[in-house]
């Protein structure tokens, strides 16, 4: 989700708090923030109980399917650094948008590692929520 970093100012303008949850170690989380995205909060969930609570699956078959292998191959060919895998490579991720009332407004549970929503689509959801809130508040 490094693609979110350039939207930092826009997220703040929209009143959005971005929380990245990882089951990697605190050391990797600090490195991630230093090298990739320093402005977002990184939460550590080593036991992955929050992953389970939010319905995110683990799947060996889907995590190492051809689409993911092809994705890794393209990254390596393009010269991206391979930092290895920390923890359980079968754990899948997801994205959720929760509005100020605590209601889930967007939920995406990855079917495989390449199945992530476009950042532009997430931003459109967040902008729409902001517009709706302004309408309700009469601004």
């Amino acid at each position: 989700m490094a693609q979110l970093c350039p939207y930092d100012d826009e997220l703040e303008r929209l009143g959005v708090k971005a929380l990245l949850v990882t089951f990697s170690s605190k050391g990797f989380a600090h490195k991630f923030r230093e090298k990739v995205c320093s402005s977002f909060s990184v939460l550590i969930n080593r036991e992955r109980d929050l992953y389970r609570t939010y319905g995110l699956e683990s799947s060996l078959l889907r995590s190492w399917g051809w689409r993911n292998l092809w994705s890794y191959a393209r990254k390596l060919v393009s010269g991206q650094e391979w930092k290895g895998i920390q923890g359980d490579s079968t754990q899948l991720g997801g994205e959720f948008i929760i509005d100020r009332d605590g209601t889930v407004r967007f939920a995406h549970r990855s079917r495989d590692p390449t199945d992530r929503p476009r950042v532009e689509a997430l931003m459109e959801h967040l902008q729409e929520i902001s517009r709706q809130r302004k309408d309700l508040d009469g601004e």
Partner: peptide, 15 residues
Amino acid sequence: DEGHVVLLVFLRHLG
């Protein structure tokens, strides 16, 4: 309670 909307992103790993 602080009035934020939350974008919650579950990462796969940080490799």
